[in-house]
């Protein structure tokens, strides 16, 4: 019989790398071998950051462009504060911010009913680009816009970002 004493027990891992789900308005940063996943991006954007020398990887799923007026203490919900937060957390985990690379996906304009001007998907993408540029982080891969949903899987061993869609071929960024 396994004895448990309240301390965290680590489960033996099987051959498959651990999968870590990233929900909407959430982020994860990991230094372990794992797959970070997030699903069902419509106008939402997934930002993946990768530090090649250490294999530290991070993924965030943002929903809205800017935090300013709606500020509700959930920085991971917004493209601006969320991307900044992810950069900070990557650094905290030991990644050198000067060596980070970004891949972004999502920001579809499906079901955008806003009249005139650009939709939320577009504005999310624009904001993510701005924040990454301000931090001097290059975008080395992207699959954005269009009118379809996407699910993402970031492999921490390689930094590959797999983009899956309902009615299209998978893409590897």
């Amino acid at each position: 019989m396994k004895v448990y004493d309240g301390s965290q027990t680590e489960q033996a891992t099987d051959s498959r790398p651990e999968r870590i789900k990233v929900g909407i308005a959430e982020y994860e940063v990991t230094t372990e071998t794992a797959e970070l996943t997030t699903s069902g991006l419509g106008s939402c954007v997934g930002v993946a950051l990768y530090h090649d020398p250490t294999n530290i990887a991070g993924l965030i799923h943002v929903m809205l462009p800017v935090a300013d007026e709606m500020d509700d203490g959930k920085p991971a919900k917004f493209a601006d504060t969320g991307t900044e937060l992810l950069i900070d957390e990557m650094e905290a985990a030991g990644a050198d911010a000067g060596e980070l690379e970004a891949k972004i996906a999502g920001g579809s304009d499906m079901l955008d009913f806003s009249e005139g001007g650009s939709g939320i998907g577009d504005r999310n993408i624009t904001q993510v680009r701005e924040t990454l540029t301000a931090a001097d982080i290059p975008i080395v891969g992207e699959d954005v816009g269009g009118d379809h949903g996407r699910s993402l899987r970031l492999e921490t061993e390689t930094g590959n970002l797999l983009v899956k869609s309902a009615n299209r071929e998978d893409q590897r960024l």
Binding site: G40, M70, S108, L111, D112, I120
Partner: peptide
């Protein structure tokens, strides 16, 4: 009506985001 054919979560996400501009 606008016809949609996609992942469930991706369908509702833009609608929630549009509301989310004004409410938490």
């Amino acid at each position: 009506p606008r016809l949609v054919h996609d992942m469930g979560r991706a369908i509702i996400d833009p609608l929630a985001a549009q509301l989310g501009q004004h409410q938490q």
